[in-house]
Nucleic acid binder design. Structure first.
Lengths: 188, 188
DNA sequence: CACCAGAGTAAACAAGCGTATACTTGAAAA
DNA sequence: TTTTCAAGTATACGCTTGTTTACTCTGGTG
């Protein structure tokens, strides 16, 4: 039995998986192809060989990276509740929401920004907006997106201990109210 | 009249000012000391000579960099309105809120994160929290901070044209409702 | 005028990055 | 067994980064 399996597809998968975790955890800029290769147990050169470039690998990773999607779909009446739960859970546990994490950790390379922007537009704003009946759907979706993104920023900023003295239940309840305020068909 | 004034203090000021603008615009990681020096019309070596290190320069910049402060202070009843106006204005025009910009553009260097965390804690969360009477003040302040940060992320992500089809008045009105939901003494 | 502390400069340093190249190895085909 | 070709490897290239060192220049002072 060979120490390393000579299997291009499997190796590619390992690289993709490792890249996904690392990008979500540390952001595009802070992750090096050497880190990815090391985590995947593959050689540095294979990353570029199989995915062309680091940026291209990032784009590939991004295609299949989101967990909010589940919260957006489902019963419309409970949409604010589900979003609140999702965000509160993320604030509390730091659970991985790869898309959001990559977003506010990404650098400012135009190439990377473009793929991220497209992803937020379709994966968050458009996805939420499409679910909302009534006028001002886009505005309402944008504000919900603001909260989703903001929670990511705050959590990343304050870290695991930054929220320890805040009551999770309170946060979630108030988040739901806030989401409701953003998403309601009529303002006020 | 000499082409360059040999004035340590003035040069230091120019470097500080240039660093402030560049950090706010492009984030810590994307700004190089050479960019700062060039923008300030100074030599590369002076940046490190006068401020010790890039990280230290960043910390120095951060001390005097915030414009939300004004919105936080003043009549408590109108606090949600002022915050909503501030955030809406920022969404619409991309107006500079240096602290927020640097936040979600900063890299993940522990050193940089620490100084940013401290700044958000004192400049946003604590500042807002201190103004709120009643229970759950910290939770309420945290959620308001979420919106403030999230708006920065969204604006940066979508760019100047990303919001062109959203009605600014609608955004502001809904933001105010959302802030009210977050900040209200009692949930629901 | 001569001097000199110190502002400003040029150049190089070591380290790290993404990427490319030339090589080695192993397993399947002949 | 021998051949062969792609998977995997080792290594180095070219570049950029933050930082430091040794130097030049200048304006105020005696």
């Amino acid at each position: 039995m060979p120490l390393v399996t000579r299997d291009r597809e499997a190796t590619g998968e390992r690289i993709l998986a490792a890249a996904g975790e690392l990008f979500a955890e540390h952001g595009y800029d802070q992750v090096t192809v050497r880190m990815i290769a090391s985590a995947a147990g593959a050689n540095v050169a294979l990353v570029n060989r199989y995915f062309g470039s680091k940026a291209n690998l990032f784009a590939t990773v991004l295609i299949t990276a989101s967990t909010v999607t589940a919260a957006i779909e489902g019963d419309l009446a409970r949409l604010p509740a589900r979003l609140a739960e999702h965000v509160a859970h993320r604030l509390r546990t730091g659970a991985s929401e790869p898309l959001v994490r990559m977003l506010d950790r990404a650098g400012t390379s135009p190439e990377i920004r473009a793929v991220l922007t497209a992803r937020v537009e379709t994966g968050l704003v458009d996805a939420i907006s499409a679910r909302l009946p009534g006028p001002q759907a886009r505005e309402r979706a944008l504000l919900a997106t603001v909260i989703i993104l903001g929670a990511g920023s705050l959590r990343r900023l304050l870290g695991p201990d930054g929220l320890h003295d805040a009551d999770p239940a309170v946060l979630q309840a108030r988040l739901e109210t806030a989401f409701r305020a953003c998403l309601a068909p009529a303002a006020d």
